[in-house]
Structures are given as C-alpha cells and as structure tokens.
C-alpha cells in the first residue's frame, strides 16, 4: 500500500476513530477510574478506595449469582436458538416462493420491544390465564412459572429464543444460499441424500454461519436485562439475576456507581474471556473440518 492510500485511509477512518475516542475510549478510561472510587454520581465528594470495589464484588453472592446465571442461560438459550433458527432457515430455503416474505415475517419478533413482549408473556403464564386454567383443570398441573428457579430462566430463555430465532435464521439462510449446487450434486452422486446430505454437507458448509450465530448468541447472554427486569426482578433466589441487573441495581437503585462500574468491568472481562474461549473451540472444530 502506498503512503497516499494509507493517508486517505486514515482520513476516511478518522470520523469513526474520533467518534470512538469520544464515546468509547474516554468513557472507558473514566469508568476505569470510577471503579476505584466510592462515588455515587451525585455527591460532590468521593474517595478512592483502591481494590475494595473489586474485592466486594468478588465476594458478593449477587455477583456470583450473575456469573453462574449467565452460563445457565447460555446452556438453555444457545442450543434452542441455534436449532430453532437453523430449522427455520432450512424451511425458508426450501420454500418454492415468497422466501423473502417469510424471512421478514420471522424477523419481526426481533424488532418487538422487550418490555412489551415481557408483559405479554407475563399475561400468558399468569395464574388465571387460559393456558394455566387448562393445565389445572385438564391435567391437575398448578405450575408456578416464574416462581420456580428452574422454570423462570427457561421461560426467559424461550422468550429470547422466540425473539432472536428469526434474526439468526437470516444468517443461516444467507449461508444456505451461498452453498454451491455442485456440492450437493457431487454428494448425491456419492449417495448422500436426505438427512445424510444435511448432516454431512449442509451443516459443515454452514460453519461460518454457525460461528457467527454462536458468538452472537453467547455475547447476548452477558447483556440480558429487560426480560428478567420485567418478569422476575432477578428472582426467585437469584435464579434469573444477570450481570446487567446487578449493575443497574447497584449503580442506579442503590447509588453505588463506583461499585457498579467495578462490576461492569468484571462483566466485560468475563464476557471477553468467554467469547475468546468459544471462538477458540469453534475455530478448532472448524479447522478439523477444513475451515482454516
């Protein structure tokens, strides 16, 4: 690359660099400083407290709960959303017509407000809803959907899967559309038809889509807020207590902004580390199947 091209590149990139510096870099350094203070955002006076906020966070039951709950959500959400979106993408891909219409239709839940859909879900699973009345009358099942530490996260995971399945299906769909017909023809000659073709040809060929969807889905789990905030408030017994709930509660409810920032920093470290591990695992798997 010649020097002129490099300069033009820097010039064109500069608006974004400046934007990032102002809205990300400066706040990041400010947050790093804040995490070592006991400031509550409104008091004119505050002190630096060294590592105290990080130590408190390390021993806090609610922070530990947020850590484990995230992986619990991941265990429920990631397989459901990948299976669901792949299934949806395969259906749309094989539609004879109106693929675009269906793809957009399934994408719509992604645009729905988290608060609105949480309120709808709350209504659907409320004690006196038709669903629960049917379960009680017909089967004798009196289910406490949001009061059970197992069911409450499952409800939230399913709700989020409903929201994201259409979006991720679009990614899989673009992957499916990009598989050359010749690959399928060659597989057919080798006797791979039906389910065998899906398992041995389609799925390995979709590796880039799997990679993207998995990383997006894993990253998403570290940012859950609206659904547990509206549905459960983090309960029962911290079963749906997420990082974002903890940060919000500390910074804006209890006015512990310094401590909340420390938790946010720990959250970002855990997020980066988790995504790094997932990336490495996926890349290793991809490498074994010819995706370098």
């Amino acid at each position: 690359m010649n020097k002129h091209a490099a300069k033009v590149g820097w010039l064109l990139a500069s608006p974004y660099l400046i934007y990032s510096a102002i809205f990300f870099l400066i706040p990041l350094f400010w947050a790093l400083y804040l995490a070592f203070t006991n400031w509550n955002l409104i008091s004119p006076e505050y002190e630096t407290v060294g590592m105290q906020n990080f130590l408190d966070a390390f021993f806090s039951p609610s922070v530990r709960a947020a850590f484990w709950v995230t992986y619990k959500f991941m265990l429920m959400f990631v397989p459901i959303v990948i299976a669901g979106s792949l299934f949806l993408a395969l259906i749309i891909h094989h539609l004879p017509r109106w693929k675009g219409l269906f793809a957009v239709g399934y994408f719509l839940p992604y645009l729905a407000s988290g608060v609105a859909s949480s309120i709808v879900v709350k209504g659907v699973i409320s004690y006196n809803s038709p669903l629960n009345q049917f379960l009680r009358d017909a089967l004798g099942w009196d289910i406490d959907w949001l009061g059970s530490p197992i069911l409450a996260p499952l409800v939230i995971a399913l709700m989020m899967a409903w929201k994201f399945v259409g979006y991720y299906a679009l990614l899989f769909l673009s992957g499916l559309e990009s598989i050359p017909k010749e690959v399928y023809e060659a597989a057919e000659i080798d006797g791979a038809v039906g389910w065998k073709r899906v398992w041995h040809v389609t799925i390995p060929m979709l590796y880039p889509s799997f990679y993207t969807v998995t990383i997006l889905a894993v990253g998403l789990m570290f940012g859950i807020f609206t659904e547990p905030y509206v549905l459960t408030g983090g309960g029962p017994e911290y079963a749906t207590h997420t990082w974002q709930l903890e940060i919000y509660n500390q910074a804006f409810e209890k006015l512990n902004a310094g401590y909340g920032t420390a938790v946010a920093i720990i959250n970002s470290i855990v997020t980066f580390a988790s995504i790094f591990v997932f990336r490495k695992v996926l890349e290793k798997w991809g490498g074994k199947h010819g995706w370098e």
Partner: peptide
Amino acid sequence: VLTKETKDPFESGT
C-alpha cells in the same frame, strides 16, 4: 395468599 403472577386478580374475583 396467592404468590403466583396473576393478571387483574382483584378485578376477576380471584
């Protein structure tokens, strides 16, 4: 007391 989420319990007579 009913401690499960309930929609409009007073209005519905629950």
